[in-house]
Simulated scan of single mutants.
Amino acid sequence: MTMMFGLVVAAFFNPTVPENIDVAEANWNNYPRLETPTLAIPNGEMVTRVQRLMQSGECSFEGQRPRRFSIDISYGVQLDSAGNATRIIVEDVGCRPLELMVGRIAADIVRRGWVRTAPPARPTIYANRINFNLS
């Protein structure tokens, strides 16, 4: 009985995230910053995936090479007054697989409760950035 109550409470406090990930161009600096603790993102596996996308020719970035790159990708998370993500937006960088990966990372940040931004009074988009680099 106590375990069941714990599961119900845990489910109640887990923020929700949307299924869809939008890709868009925006002035990302105009949004308030999405605060999170210091996270090990991207990790080595994520950087390797970016490297493979570049090696395969599936994605290319001006001035970047598969063995040496630094790619910044911004993302936004719209939070509602309960702290749920109602929209995830990723910067359009012309590489759909990488944009989707960043969207999934953003969703996971919310899902795991790593957002330190207080829930806003009304729905607000908060932004942050991930830098994928290999040198």
Rank of each mutant, 00 (worst) to 15 (best):
M1V: 06
T2V: 07
T2W: 00
T2K: 07
T2A: 07
T2D: 05
G6Q: 11
L7F: 12
V9N: 08
A10K: 10
F12Y: 09
F13G: 01
F13E: 03
N14T: 10
P15T: 07
T16W: 09
V17A: 10
N20E: 11
I21S: 06
V23H: 05
E25H: 14
N27I: 14
P32I: 02
R33W: 00
R33P: 05
R33A: 08
L34T: 05
L34R: 01
L34A: 03
E35N: 09
T36P: 05
P37T: 02
T38K: 15
L39Q: 14
L39C: 15
L39H: 14
L39G: 12
I41R: 03
N43V: 07
N43R: 11
N43D: 15
G44D: 10
M46Y: 01
V50G: 03
V50W: 00
R52H: 12
L53P: 07
M54H: 10
M54N: 07
S56D: 11
S56W: 02
G57R: 13
E58W: 02
S60T: 11
F61M: 08
E62M: 10
Q64S: 11
R67M: 10
R67I: 00
S70K: 15
I71E: 05
S74C: 12
Y75H: 11
Y75I: 06
G76V: 13
V77E: 01
L79F: 03
D80A: 13
S81Y: 09
A82T: 11
G83E: 04
T86N: 03
I88N: 01
I88P: 01
I89V: 14
V90C: 08
D92I: 06
V93K: 04
G94P: 10
R96C: 11
P97E: 05
L98G: 02
E99W: 05
M101K: 12
V102S: 05
G103P: 15
I105R: 01
A106I: 06
A107Q: 14
I109P: 03
I109V: 15
R111C: 12
R111D: 15
G113H: 12
G113Y: 13
G113E: 12
R116H: 11
T117Y: 02
P119N: 05
P120S: 03
A121W: 00
A121E: 09
A121S: 08
R122S: 03
P123T: 08
T124R: 08
T124A: 09
Y126W: 08
Y126A: 08
Y126L: 13
A127K: 02
N128R: 04
I130H: 01
I130L: 08
N131Q: 12
F132Q: 01
L134E: 03
S135N: 13
